[in-house]
Simulated scan of single mutants.
Amino acid sequence: MLDTVKAISRDYIPYTEGKTVASNDKFYKIFSKELPTAFQNALQGSEELLIKGCIAQPNHRYPKIPLVTFMDARVTNSAKSGYYVALLFSEDMKRILLSLNQGFERPIGKKLNRTEKFRTLKDRACSVREELQHLINDFSTYEVSADLGASLERGKGYEAGHIIGKSFEVNTLFSWSQIDKYLVSLLSIYRVLVEYYGSTLLTTIGIETEDSFQKNIQKAHQCYLPDGPLPKPSPNQFSNTGSRRRNVAVSSISLRNSGYLCQLEPAHKTFKSKSSGENFVEAHHLVPLSYQDDFTFNIDVPENIVALCPTCHRLLHHGGGKELIEAIEALFVIRKTGLEHRGLHISREQLISLYI
């Protein structure tokens, strides 16, 4: 593999400069077939990954920054959208960059001008890095900026979309294991993000409104959470609105566990959600996330999230008096054991005091 990387570094520019791609060209074969196959064979547990060389289609100009992408099809199948791991060559071919990166084409699902696009990519990369700091023990060993020497918009998009990674000077590489160590580590991080957030990662950490949060829950990918108390999130995990960031994938677990029924009044039927196909209910944190600092462990867990019809949900936010207290007491009975299992200890009286 290292010999191939060095050959690309040495020969790519003189071979491709000013040329259009042909299906029998040397570098088209390397990126479309040889490298993806070699990575598929070399990486253990890579069967679920879609590994693609991005080199341009025949009759199009060779890109200045070729790359190989490692993608989970549940998240994306293109470097233009979602998030993925990539091995990119710098424009001068002297460096390679392993990068956890994100799609650059329409980063928030709509057309933006160049300045808005790059700003969105950079802001989102920063937010994901904040999320990763409590998930990665050796976070400081990764580089948070990318310099590919890009002169064109696509290359600058890769630079702006870079979340974390590691760069290497090709002429200093003496063993493939130098690269493989970080590639395997980045892919492990990627798998955690996919399992925890699925396709919602980049929307979860964007500008969040209550409506967009509830909407994203309906289509969230199923995630896995370890049993028992979970680590408290870092104190800088706030959304762009200043509130603590909520994980839609975690909230969706609670909705599924409830059978998509209101946990205060199961007879309250609403309508069929066009995203989930189930009775529409909303997620509500019984202990509000604004009280996270009062607890030793993470309170953004399914046991602290109740499914409510929109009417009962509004009661908890805008109601008062006996009606509100009775609703809180009923939900406390349902959730008390689960909260304690997650290391979250609160009395009925303490919970009521958070609302009145």
Rank of each mutant, 00 (worst) to 15 (best):
G103C: 07
G321W: 06
P66L: 01
S276D: 00
L152W: 11
L193E: 01
E153F: 00
V21G: 05
E303D: 09
R119M: 12
S252H: 11
A56Q: 15
G155W: 09
L315S: 05
Y190V: 02
K215F: 12
F295R: 05
K117Y: 03
I179S: 05
Q44A: 14
V184A: 08
E91A: 11
D294W: 06
E105F: 01
Y197E: 04
D180R: 12
S258M: 03
K181G: 01
G242F: 03
I217N: 11
C223L: 06
V144C: 14
Y158V: 06
L183V: 06
L193R: 02
V250C: 10
I334L: 15
S276I: 01
Y260T: 03
Y28V: 05
E159I: 11
C312F: 02
R335Q: 15
D294G: 07
A160V: 08
F297K: 08
F297I: 06
Q57S: 15
L88R: 00
I13N: 14
S46N: 01
K80R: 11
T311I: 12
K274R: 12
D11S: 08
S78V: 02
S290P: 00
N137K: 14
D211E: 15
E159S: 10
Y260N: 10
L315R: 06
Y355H: 07
K29Y: 05
E91Y: 01
H345T: 15
H345N: 15
L202E: 07
F295M: 08
Q44F: 12
H317V: 06
H268E: 13
I189H: 03
V184T: 13
Y182L: 04
E282T: 01
P231D: 13
P310T: 09
S258F: 00
M71G: 00
I299A: 02
S199P: 02
M71L: 07
M1W: 08
E130F: 09
N77C: 06
N247D: 09
K33E: 12
L43T: 05
K156A: 13
